[in-house]
Nucleic acid binder design. Structure first.
Lengths: 224, 224
DNA sequence: TAAATTAGATAGTAATACTATCATTTGATA
DNA sequence: TATCAAATGATAGTATTACTATCTAATTTA
């Protein structure tokens, strides 16, 4: 069985839908590659155009600017992750097992899953760790939020908050704890790799240690 | 008694020490103002130079580029905060009271304290919330880290980790919890103000709710 | 076959992120 | 008070970035 995953993206994220054309898909594929290699600051549409054998103007037909492209990539990632989470938690009724699986999915290294040929999910995961928060840390967050650009992130957060409440309906901060889990699943991995003294994982580079930390944090907090 | 607080900054943070000249102090003062008003991305040395009646080249004599200036401001902030924390926790022996005061100092709105004329700590605090993580979320974190540019952040983290261990010497993740507290004290406030559905604080804009959330998170985790 | 969509090629502009040079002011020192 | 060095200001210039505009060629679709 070969299935291609298609994620329906908010129209405001792009000028022209990149998933519907060859060039569009190349933009997604190679922007992920380039941002991963050079970082978001050094990434330009010109460099991207050169790599994919197109022109700057060509890229601008799909995305207003590189920041919008970053928001697109993050939105895609969160949608994909929500799908993945939903899929993996299917048929599990015990909320504590759900939460454990969830933390695993958030913090553990992703293996490119071939469900989309032009998105390397493993590399995209790395990008989201290092660049993801730049999508919303801007002067125009509120405007972007009005355009619902962060809906996938918020949906995932809601999903997690729901499971937390399943586990303990009296817990008072399900959403804040959910966003804490999401953010820390990424940031503790980043710290482990680049600023290890901000963590207790040394230079191990072992994401399972982050998983253990988060499990402890979460289950202590929501214990009935 | 009028005291001027002088924070000794790492020499690698600047080209020429901005605290020692009038122009340097103006750069600090007005860069804080401009980054606050326009966001870090829209902030340029040219605009800064115009505001303080100097020239672009003049600013470059103090800071290599705007990213270094951001690192300088964050380093200054963390040093100042560590001093503040040390000061406020002085003579307190009960580590649980220490932790509560600490969370309060991290998450609550700062009032400009006049201990430094050219730094508006209240606005700087706002900047660190929205822009602070951009200081380390780069391709060259590790190089910057080798130059010890993030030492003040790490020192504060160590301080907090120490208090956590005072409270419970057997807690396994004092550093990760410390960096989680620091990051979340800022991020939950940002979310509360701009993406409220990622929190449980609604549009209240009341930082005390963030304080309560963090206290709950921390004390549940480190309970003996 | 005509019409529309998509892409490529080229050009151009304003702003950004710097670097270099030289003259002037200021302030410390002898 | 003369002198020297440090700090600043003024000006100019470059490469790159972040776009916008226009025109043509190729491809698809009706």
């Amino acid at each position: 069985m070969e299935l291609q995953l298609q994620i329906k993206m908010n129209e405001k994220l792009f000028v022209r839908n990149p998933e519907q054309t060859e060039l569009g898909r190349k933009i997604i594929q190679f922007s992920i590659q380039l941002i991963y290699e050079n970082g978001f600051e050094a990434f330009t549409f010109k460099k991207l155009a050169e790599v994919i054998g197109s022109t700057e103007a060509g890229i601008y037909r799909y995305f207003e600017n590189k920041h919008r492209l970053l928001i697109y990539l993050t939105a895609w990632y969160w949608s994909w992750l929500e799908f993945r989470v939903t899929f993996h938690l299917n048929n599990i009724s015990d909320p504590s097992i759900k939460l454990k699986k969830l933390i695993q999915l958030l913090a553990a290294n992703v293996i490119d899953d071939d469900s989309t040929i032009y998105v390397n999910e493993s590399i995209l995961h790395q990008i989201i760790i290092a660049e993801g928060s730049k999508a919303y840390l801007t002067k125009h967050v509120s405007d972007d939020n009005k355009d619902r650009l962060f809906k996938p992130y918020k949906d995932l957060c809601s999903l997690i908050a729901g499971i937390i409440l399943e586990y303990n309906p009296h817990y008072t901060h399900p959403r804040s704890l959910a966003s804490t889990i999401i953010e820390m699943a990424h940031l503790q991995v980043f710290f482990m790799n680049h600023l290890p003294s901000l963590t207790d994982f040394g230079e191990s580079r072992d994401e399972q240690l982050v998983v253990e930390y988060l499990e402890d944090l979460v289950f202590c907090s929501i214990r009935k």
